[in-house]
Amino acid sequence: MSEALITARNLVKKFGELTAVAGIDVEVRRGEAFGFLGPNGAGKSSTMRMIGCVSPVTSGELRLFGMDPATDGPRIRGRIGVVPQMDTLDTELTVEENLHIYGRFFDIPRAECRRRTKELLAFAQLSERATSVVDNLSGGMKRRLSIARSLINNPELLLLDEPTTGLDPQARHVLWDRLYRLKQDGVTLVLTTHYMDEAEQLCDRLVVMDQGRIVAEGSPRSLIEQHSTREVLELRFPAGRNEEHGPQVEGLGERHEVLPDRILVYARDGEEALAAAHARGLQPESALVRRSSLEDVFLHLTGRTLVD
């Protein structure tokens, strides 16, 4: 197995009385794409900021490249790239100025900065916008620039906090494509998201986080295998009437969940469950059979949905 780049043991972050991260254990190895999946407020950003060596650890142990952020912050930060949840681009500067000056923060020589700036502009598909002022870019472009900027120091480890939140579907796909390429180039990725499709697409391994704790860990596929059935039957009854149909689906699958707008029946074979539902005389407005996703895993583990 390759070396561990991040090791966290019983990691805790408190803000006064509030416990944002309540003792988590995490290990990320070189070359992995690792994800923190969880709803808003789960403690993902707090964790990422500790890993990024900008937020001090309250208690527990954290090591990056075997070093302690408390004593080796600058050295660690020199080897990682960070894309924070909220962009911190210099909106008054141009795209290429943003990249160039960031390289200077790492004391990369000017000529090298210029070379890498050009390369990263191409990578982020921003070459034509090199001299545009950042303020005038679209949200997706800004996010791509943030990612390009985080790569200026050739980081061994890239931290991405909700890289695609707030972007339209097309912009998200462009971004996923770029991240996928980084992954293939062997960059170790750690990302947070509350989109289960993003986690499924990009992560080799992930932890599901809720209220500061890790509630499950594994590859997307193994998590689904462990915590959900192969298929899901979604039944939609008229608004407000899903609740009352709950008892009637009992036994159609291994288990079910009643949501305000639909009932989810967890079954190995969804079509079979649907046929059984019809046989019971149930008449939903619509019915749909799909494969289980991480959303179902989260729902099962916490009783809540990821995106509210």
């Binding site: 600058p74 681009l89 120091n153």
Partner: peptide, 14 residues
């Protein structure tokens, strides 16, 4: 606002 200091603090600088 621009949060440039946060950007710098995430690099090798202090």
């Amino acid at each position: 606002w621009s949060r440039g200091y946060h950007a710098i603090a995430a690099t090798a600088l202090t």
